[in-house]
Design a protein around this nucleic acid. Structure first.
Lengths: 79, 79
DNA sequence: AAACCATGTAAGATTACCTAACATTTAAAT
DNA sequence: ATTTAAATGTTAGGTAATCTTACATGGTTT
């Protein structure tokens, strides 16, 4: 049994990420635009997300929910 | 950190399952038709697969590659 | 040869996602 | 109190992925 997917492997479409993170598609795309995340694209130009991407988005959402703005999040998630 | 997706949670589109299992879309749909797997459907009627589904498909592929036919696989994977 | 099994392929319809633009809301700055 | 900027919503038109159904094909079995 090879019961896992590597954390960095992009296997999730945005529809699933929306459900998992409780973020809107608009938010996810905007955060990418702002350089907070960098999901890869498949051959058809669709965004594909890894577990790492999802965990990062969850942290972003926590900070957003605490009232922190994008600029603040950028420095806090610097890595 | 909630660093995982439950084994039974359907988060993978068929495109990813194809890559992960090295099966064709036709094969995956046919195995479903034959009752070997039962991926759930999302609101738009697209098949969505769980890690369990993927592991099962990998076992199916191994058996297929060993020359076992669908009927044989059905009894061997009875559960 | 005929029939069946497993898979390929093609066509047409539907759903998901893309970008770009404009609208709205809230907060910050003037 | 305006104006500006930040974050998100919404809409529109286009492209990609997936769906079902049907027919084609190569390999077995009868």
């Amino acid at each position: 049994m090879n019961y896992d997917i590597p954390d960095h492997m992009a296997t999730f479409p945005i529809s699933v990420v929306k459900e998992l993170t409780k973020l809107s598609g608009r938010q996810i795309r905007y955060y990418e635009e702002q350089g907070l995340i960098a999901p890869v694209r498949n051959e058809g130009n669709r965004r594909m997300f890894s577990l790492q991407d999802i965990e990062r988005l969850k942290r972003i959402k926590e900070l957003i929910d605490q009232g922190i703005n994008i600029a603040g999040i950028k420095v806090m998630l610097k890595d």
